[in-house]
Design a protein around this nucleic acid. Structure first.
Lengths: 159, 159
DNA sequence: TTAAAACTGGACAACTAATATCCAGGATAT
DNA sequence: ATATCCTGGATATTAGTTGTCCAGTTTTAA
């Protein structure tokens, strides 16, 4: 899994603390964690394409959450960055084995591929069952200063 | 996840069909699926280091399972090829955020990292609960010719 | 004892994906 | 108008995967 997932997760979580209506530009989001702005922006664009963020050009523009935090799961974020493909790459090796046929889809027929897909579904199910709101609630329970700190940092970066 | 996992899975599964005591050389295992022998051998070496296969040099040498198929889980194979690291790379981005401390291990403290680890544990649990014997049993139920085909292919390659 | 079979491990090359930067163009607020 | 900010493409850099090759070692068998 790529680094971009971590950036996207934390950035989206931070955006849950911004007063709705306010947009945060790439520069502020990048400075928050000292990330490279241009590259972070690529990931932000992917999040926009996935319908997780919305963007506004121009002065006072930037990014904001496109939906309520309750309606954004961690799986949504992972999928936006990593794409919809499965982690286990089934190259249908069985096609070259004894009795292999060109007209069979071994991604479906192969028991190993099925087992890997089954495990991956369990992973997806966990991530789908956890929203940004869930994460934020746990953060606030364990680290009560976070909302205040986050908003202050954004205010300072807004300059 | 890398391609080598698929090769390793199918190769280990095929080895469950070999009469114990018999070793299969890299060349035969590679020809089975038309894989590059030298590179497959790298993965076989990793499986040996992980204690999944054992190797024997010299004529009539090669690789065999080091344990019974019931005692080899799919997670064992994945870990042997991919390494023990977690799929979600937590770079402790929080260290650069507001209130970030150098003396805190954010891989433990970060709620996002924890959520990702939790999902990954669900994935690992599924893979750990499925052995080569389980896979073989399902293969034989769905494709009864497989044992015979596999053994015949090995015999032909041994030629 | 010799030769052939086979694994081991390291060095190295090719290819691909992730990471990262830059810029021209378009949209928007003031 | 102008400064701000997003968009998308081109491009470079780096790291990891894929793949090859070879010298060295172990073992079988004649």
């Amino acid at each position: 899994m790529s680094q971009g997932v971590e950036w996207a997760m934390h950035t989206c979580l931070n955006l849950t603390y911004v007063e709705s209506g306010q947009a945060v530009p790439t520069a502020s989001l990048a400075k928050f964690y000292a990330l490279p702005p241009a590259y972070l922006n690529k990931h932000l664009q992917a999040l926009v394409r996935a319908g997780i963020l919305s963007s506004t050009p121009g002065p006072r523009g930037g990014f904001r959450l496109a939906r309520r935090p309750e309606a954004i799961s961690l799986l949504d974020v992972v999928t936006a960055i990593e794409g919809p493909g499965e982690a286990f790459p089934c190259d249908q090796i069985l096609r070259a084995g004894p009795g292999g046929r060109a007209d069979v889809d071994y991604r479906q027929a192969c028991v190993i591929a099925g087992s890997m897909r089954h495990a991956e579904l369990a992973w997806r199910r966990e991530l789908a069952g956890r929203s940004l709101a869930d994460v934020r609630a746990e953060v606030e329970a364990r680290y009560p200063d976070t909302p205040k700190n986050t908003r202050e940092r954004f205010a300072a970066l807004r300059g």
